[in-house]
Design a protein around this nucleic acid. Structure first.
Length: 310
DNA sequence: GCATGTCAAGTTGTG
DNA sequence: CACAACTTGACATGC
């Protein structure tokens, strides 16, 4: 019923994603740049399939694809298109293989653009860069068959409603590949589930509920209420709910609860999530080991609980 | 070889 | 006002 997701990386399996920097690229002529990028993109596209095979073998049902799968693709100086790369065709075929594998084995795929993608910014340059990055992730999501591109609502700039309004104005101008996949996630400093629900309703997009962020940045809703309200945004679109879980590195008593721990404390896993049909991304530094341990512990806990009742 | 500093981008909160 | 925290490890550089 519950499907667990791994975020981007492995710590115990030889699946490595390569990258490069704009600075390093800028020292090369265009032809050399494209040759280098082509190799990296080809390796990463092949490793994506390896990553999916590995999560499938581990019994993990979802995978978040790292944003720089094709590094610096939207960079103003060194950006490029797949068609520009010597191995462009082979790379597209590798993505197609990853797509077929995920469909055949029911592995749900998602993207999570990082903090630089801000649709609520009052600065037009920030917004247009964000749109460019989203377009890139939209094309990628289409190619590999990912159904979610999840972002935060961004900054507040002293007026939350005005910021959310800007986001709403930008949304209809996004390409269909992005609009049909875009989701909003509650964050740990600014936007809560209560803040985002009206926006998600207005735009007809789902809300990704991060329970750790909710605990860091509460809004009066209980975990169960937030889960149900967020769940409704998925249900009415006929889609499977998506949530995030993590545990605080240094516990909940004092200190900063925001940094993520290596593993998930099963006590942080909401009881009301058990047995639901949904995807839960595990945001933990021990990566696939943390997903495996959480799955084990929940099974054990479930069994123990059952014994208690009997 | 190995250690260390660097990396496109935004925003907030702290010192 | 400047800087670290978000999060993050691979790459590039320099010894």
């Amino acid at each position: 019923m519950l499907r667990f997701g791994l975020c981007c990386l492995f710590i115990n399996h030889p699946v490595l994603f390569r990258t490069t920097t704009a600075k390093a690229l800028s020292k090369l002529c265009r032809e050399e740049q494209l040759r280098k990028l082509s190799e990296i993109c080809r390796d990463n596209a092949c490793n994506l399939l390896l990553a999916l095979e590995t999560v499938h073998r581990l019994g993990i049902g979802s995978f978040r694809i790292m944003s720089p799968l094709f590094p610096r693709m939207t960079h103003p100086d060194v950006g490029y298109r797949l068609a520009d790369l010597p191995d462009g065709v082979m790379i597209a075929q590798a993505l197609e293989k990853a797509r077929n594998f995920s469909i055949h084995n029911d592995i749900r795929l998602s993207f999570h653009p990082d903090q630089f993608v801000v649709l609520s910014s009052p600065h037009t340059a920030v917004v247009s860069n964000s749109i460019r990055e989203l377009e890139y992730q939209g094309r990628l999501a289409e190619a590999v068959g990912a159904d979610v591109i999840n972002i935060h609502a961004g900054g507040v700039y002293g007026d939350k409603q005005a910021a959310l309004q800007r986001l709403c104005v930008v949304f209809p101008g996004l390409p269909a590949s992005v609009r049909s996949r875009l989701t909003l996630e509650n964050d740990d400093v600014s936007y809560t589930v209560a803040d985002l629900l009206p926006v998600c309703e207005k735009l007809s997009i789902p809300l990704v509920y991060d329970v750790h962020h909710h605990r860091c940045n509460p809004d009066g809703l209980s975990v169960e209420e937030a889960t149900d309200l967020a769940g409704e945004t998925w249900r009415r679109l006929g889609r499977e709910q998506y949530c995030h879980i993590s545990s605080p590195r240094s516990g909940w008593g004092g200190g900063n609860p925001r940094p993520h721990a290596d593993y998930i404390d099963p006590a942080d896993f909401p009881d009301c999530w058990r047995g639901r049909k949904m995807t839960v991304d595990v945001e933990a530094k021990a990566k696939e080991l943390a997903v495996a341990r959480l799955m084990e512990e929940l099974e054990k806990g479930g069994a123990l609980r059952k014994q208690c009742y009997e």
